[in-house]
Design a binder for these strands. Sequence first.
DNA 1: GTGAAAGCGCTAACAT
DNA 2: ATGTTAGCGCTTTCAC
Lengths: 348, 348
Amino acid sequence: MSRKAPTIHDVALRAGVSPATASNVVNGNRPVGEESRARVLRAIAELGYRPNHLAAALRAKRSRLIGVAVPEISNPFFASLVHGLEEQAAASDYELVLVSTGEDGAAERRRIEALIDRQIEGLIVVPSRDDSFSALREKRGRALPPAVLVDRGCESPGVDTVGAECAAGAYAATRHLIELGHRDIAALTPSRHLANIRARIDGYGRALAEADLSARARVCVGGQHIDALRGAIEQDLHRADRPTAIFALTNVAALAAIKAVRALGLDIPGDVSIVGFDDFDWMCALRPYLTTVAQPVDEFASSAWRLLMQRLSGAAKEDDVRIELPCALKVRESTGPARPRLKIAAGA
Amino acid sequence: MSRKAPTIHDVALRAGVSPATASNVVNGNRPVGEESRARVLRAIAELGYRPNHLAAALRAKRSRLIGVAVPEISNPFFASLVHGLEEQAAASDYELVLVSTGEDGAAERRRIEALIDRQIEGLIVVPSRDDSFSALREKRGRALPPAVLVDRGCESPGVDTVGAECAAGAYAATRHLIELGHRDIAALTPSRHLANIRARIDGYGRALAEADLSARARVCVGGQHIDALRGAIEQDLHRADRPTAIFALTNVAALAAIKAVRALGLDIPGDVSIVGFDDFDWMCALRPYLTTVAQPVDEFASSAWRLLMQRLSGAAKEDDVRIELPCALKVRESTGPARPRLKIAAGA
DNA sequence: GTGAAAGCGCTAACAT
DNA sequence: ATGTTAGCGCTTTCAC
């Protein structure tokens, strides 16, 4: 270790000016004369001075830190979201403090409170439950920083939100399946507790209803874990009146559905068609390329960032802003015409 | 906005003790009497006091912030790494500040310096180049926090590193291909500039050499971008003596190889076998399940964290610690026996 | 345009 | 076991 890092005081000393002036050179808060500026700059270079953001943040009450909380970083959807947010942060001279909540309410609250205790200026959250944020506010009173909820909790009062038109996306996907002649279409979902999931179920239900298929609606709820999801849909697939198509309501559900169908030796889309949710590279690498409802995740990130910056600048109006972005149905190879069911597992 | 948040001073006042005692209750730095402790705790609850980590960090010179820099968050390998690190952080009462460097040296330096200016206590980096860290140290002198390099730069002096036994992994993969009868095995890689990639190339070369196939070695360098990679290997695939197997040295290269092979209407593994690198869920969802060299990414995270914590506690010895974890060859469906080449694109 | 002085909220000496 | 004091490094009044 060399001697301790130079402070702005050292810079000021060496430049023969006051700390205030040195500070003003570093972060142009006030105009500084040609002469002084040059000397300060020189001193900075000579000393290798670097500002201490912590101290600046404490004094100015601006940490330039944004807290980000997602349920699970390795989920490609959330990973893409974080990626987009990081890009925005880098461009606006902010840093991201990232926590993972694991779809667990208690852990979520602890992690988000840790973020707040660190004086983050704003919060971007994919909550584990729709009411997570309201619950948090109840606990913390008005001491919450500006926040934007993404993907989930899109009806939460008192906070801006960004989500997708899930009902429309799900409707389009289900229509697609119906037009292919499917009449037994199962929806596979981790839970029914999230509004965005319920919107997907609604879209699915509406498409069925329009085709007079309401009686055949079946929503298979499999839980968060992929193995549980897979087990749940596998049971359904074992029935004599097994579905000829599965609409997976999340990307994890899609993976589970694929594995279940494979495990039973059924062909995609020959025996069972599959529509997934979300979209990323690996979905169109291996066969069959997955038909899916793509959410505009990059726009999620940029919209959430924009909303948050507006709140931080105080330029936002009182009302909560609700952004709903359209989904896009990507028809690829995992969906095909319905065929009469054969007995399953009748050999290779 | 309600009135400003209570400080530890307010707590002390209300509990009728000194700020020091209140502080000691909050973060058990020194023992506190039963009586005082109870009153402080009550004051904290009544006031809804929350400590300001920024101020604590400034004073104690311990930010409990760890900087993490990865080339690209949405790459599933890095996403898993970050996920693992976040788990460790949550368990040790640290927070992660995450930046993305985009495989770009200049951006990397800027982002990492931003991290340092925020007084992070330690740094976990997947550098964009093997010498990134040395270059950084040159610029910043000894003012660098303890750091651990993961995956890349594993020979950098003056810093602990965690990586995989890439040469052994690549050797095993290539042997596997050779045992299947392949003699024209192309290696596809984004670049040759990273030591871990070179180790993979070495392992590949050694296996070829042992089988007297050195003359047929071909390393196809395609660049960072997936389309470029794909174009590069597609060219190779167009040649009359096209490879019957491709060993993709990264997960992005694997994706590119698959797309290229598909685009030419070739069958995997019938016409071309493929071995990938890294391992994650989607690799064994769609067909054919990808044969791959799996790196122990969770162990990367836990080892890196452990090393960093040791440095932070001062318990580490002087010497750089080098951890090399074994890879595992996962033989699945994308590799099969070599078949004589037929003319390509001869119709459906 | 510049400087002096006063803290931001907290913890670490040094007392007792 | 507890209190008193003095800052951490910075920015911001308030003067000039």
